[in-house]
Nucleic acid binder design. Structure first.
Lengths: 203, 203
DNA sequence: CGTTATACAAACAGTTCTGTATGTTAGATC
DNA sequence: GATCTAACATACAGAACTGTTTGTATAACG
């Protein structure tokens, strides 16, 4: 029954994919290794060969998927010259569209939101916080640039605006992910953000 | 060892309070009845006497605590005559202050956010959705009234604004509850909301 | 081409948790 | 004040899950 190395890689991937679905459906702590194995078409032996335990499996799953980090941060440099508000609006809208289409991201983010980070999963939570703070920081810098050139409405400070913007994005995504995706994330989200940003420009 | 009826009520309350703390610390599905019993200073027998099982215990815990529903909805009628924006801002700020001070609410809401609603807990999730929708609906009506009297900035529609406002509130609370309460909810939240609402008024 | 280590499957051992059944004591009832 | 029953504690049975160990066929390698 010995498989080739390529086969093993495939098996590993199948396990990760199965874990993603099972964790999403039942929650991390409610899912058993047996269920993951069944969904992957292997036995628990295969899982324990590739991963140390459930926590390790979860961590590898977490690492194996591109999260909002890179996408958003990578575009930071882009917004040097152009209209800050337009760039941010486009970035946010793009992110929403990507999320709305990519079911894998939806599952991963749902899992990340619902799992309880007590003990061993603490570093994941910490990293999530770090990413969020980074987003706020980048947005604050961008809004500060807009404020310097007098393009930001005076009732907003860059810091408060960056926080509020991220809160709105987070609330939007949480509502959509955690509570049944009952609306069109891309369309309604883009609409709300667009109106919000329109009000930020100095009169 | 037979206790009086009053004693039994006390025991029941102790169990609920212990469940609240244990569920908050370890997550609902990760907490065992033994741990709850230990925290309550009783044995599992006492818990199974008062509650059918863990799901039932959770449901009773959920029912035993006043949630944002009543607080906010109760004030719906209040905002008939006055300045809609001021009323909403005050309501939101009050809610944030209440939440920031009431550790019990913080724990309950954290538990509610992190538990996985697969299967038996589905009705709770459904009710949460219902409450959220109700809030959106009330806000939409209020904003519609403001729009009719020409007090709402034209770039907003009542529906979009109500949704966006609730998203921001939800994102704010989720960020604070789920990710370590690293900032002053009442102060920073009030500040952000205040600035946001300031931008809603027609120029 | 023989040996070895790999990639699993299958069986096993141990723990933990749940739910229930039984025991026990003292308040409630008459 | 004898009886009954509420309000638990204790003991038990069984399921579920985890981690490990053992078995094994075969790819990899010299």
């Amino acid at each position: 029954m010995r498989r080739t190395k390529a086969d093993a890689k495939v098996t590993r991937q199948q396990i990760l994919y199965a874990a993603e679905r099972v964790f999403f459906e039942k929650g991390v702590s409610n899912a058993s290794m047996e269920e993951v194995a069944l969904a992957a078409g292997v036995t628990r032996g295969a899982i324990y060969w590739h991963f140390a335990n459930k926590t390790d499996l979860f961590m590898e799953l977490y690492k194996s998927v591109p999260l909002p980090q890179e996408d958003m941060v990578a575009r930071e440099l882009e917004m040097e010259g152009a209209d800050v508000f337009a760039v941010i609006e486009r970035m946010a809208a793009e992110w929403l569209e990507v999320l709305a289409k990519d079911e894998q991201r939806q599952r991963i983010l749902s899992i990340l939101l619902r799992c309880d980070y007590g003990g061993e999963l603490a570093p994941v939570l910490q990293q999530q916080q770090q990413v969020f703070d980074e987003h706020v920081r980048i947005l604050e810098m961008a809004f500060a640039r807009a404020a310097e050139t007098g393009k930001l409405d005076r009732c907003w400070t860059p810091r408060a605006l960056a926080s509020s913007f991220c809160w709105m994005m987070k609330g939007l995504c949480v509502e959509w992910l955690l509570f049944g995706r009952r609306f069109d994330l891309a369309a309604e989200g883009r609409d709300g953000l667009s109106r919000f940003i329109r009000g930020l420009r100095a009169a």
